[in-house]
């Protein structure tokens, strides 16, 4: 049984696309056939972060409009053969989306993929609604700040009201919380919301905490999902997160401020 998972947040810039790319890559690394769809029509980024920008010929909207077949539009990742990308159109607008069209594409993808990851655009407009409509599970990406948590709360309400599962009245979407760009030292000094604060406010299960890391920007620019950076904290945190999603019992890491050793204190970082 394949699963449709939406990566969403409400607010922009919290790391939805980074999370989609790393999460999909992580599942593929574990051997699952995975496709990640970019729903951000007109502002496509996923193919950049996945490093396949130059290989886009056809896109999601072409498939919806039956101008191209799925096999023509879906791009296979160069590093992991289980990983596939369905890029967004850069030239159309979100009016190209229809529930019928998106539904047909997702149904067809279900025949050949175990996980279908939907990378939602920011906001609560049509593109975001389409991305969550067919979801079985949701990864809610939030940053440790009030406005992001508030938007996530709004998005949880929308998941409960506007998804297909909600409208059909069947078992609701399973929600997972991902706290991204977490800076332990700033939490300790009270500048950032703590994990407990966020969980109190949102009241859903925590899947993972991704620490802020310079590596994310570097990896994005290089077109490599950060989960592939074995040395970086955020890469490791994403690996833990994928393991937890698959049911493994992995404790949270990188929640304490880094202790500076004597040498580092003497010579700086």
């Amino acid at each position: 049984m394949s699963k449709v998972i939406v990566v969403t947040s409400g607010k922009g810039g919290v790391g939805k696309t980074t999370t989609s790319a790393s999460f999909a890559t992580g599942l593929a690394m574990r051997g699952y056939k995975t496709v990640v769809i970019d729903f951000d029509i007109g502002l496509r980024n996923l193919d950049l972060i996945m490093g396949c920008e130059r290989r886009v010929v056809y896109d999601f909207v072409n498939v919806i409009n039956q101008e191209a077949s799925l096999t023509q539009a879906v791009i296979r990742d160069k590093a992991y053969e289980n990983l596939h990308i369905l890029p967004a159109s850069q030239t159309r607008d979100k009016e190209s989306f229809t529930i019928k069209g998106v539904g047909q594409v997702i149904n067809e993808l279900k025949d050949s993929f175990e996980y279908i990851i939907c990378d939602s655009p920011a906001g609560i407009e049509k593109g975001a609604i389409m991305a969550l409509y067919f979801a079985d599970e949701a990864l809610l990406v939030t940053n440790p700040e009030v406005s992001s948590v508030r938007d996530s709360d709004r998005m949880l309400g929308i998941l409960h009201a506007k998804s297909k599962r909600a409208i059909d009245g069947i078992e609701p979407i399973k929600e997972h919380l991902i706290i991204n760009r977490y800076i332990p030292s700033r939490v300790e000094s009270g500048e950032m919301l703590s994990i407990k604060d966020i969980q109190d406010l949102l009241g859903i299960d925590l899947l993972g905490v991704i620490p802020e890391s310079e590596m994310v920007l570097q990896a994005s620019n290089a077109g490599v999902p950060v989960i592939r950076e074995e040395e970086s904290n955020s890469g490791q945190a994403y690996r833990d997160l994928v393991g937890r999603f698959l049911g493994e019992d992995i404790p949270l890491r990188f929640l304490e401020p880094e202790k500076k050793g004597l040498l580092k204190r003497l010579f700086g970082t």
């Binding site: 508030r150 709004r154 949880l156």
Partner: peptide, 26 residues
């Protein structure tokens, strides 16, 4: 269930009992 930002619950002709948080914006 939690009443989330942007949601509205109305109990006509009577009382409203809520067993989970009413979040900011709800």
């Amino acid at each position: 269930k939690p009443v989330r930002s942007g949601q509205q619950i109305y109990a006509p002709n009577g009382d409203l009992v809520i067993l989970s948080p009413v979040n900011a914006g709800a």
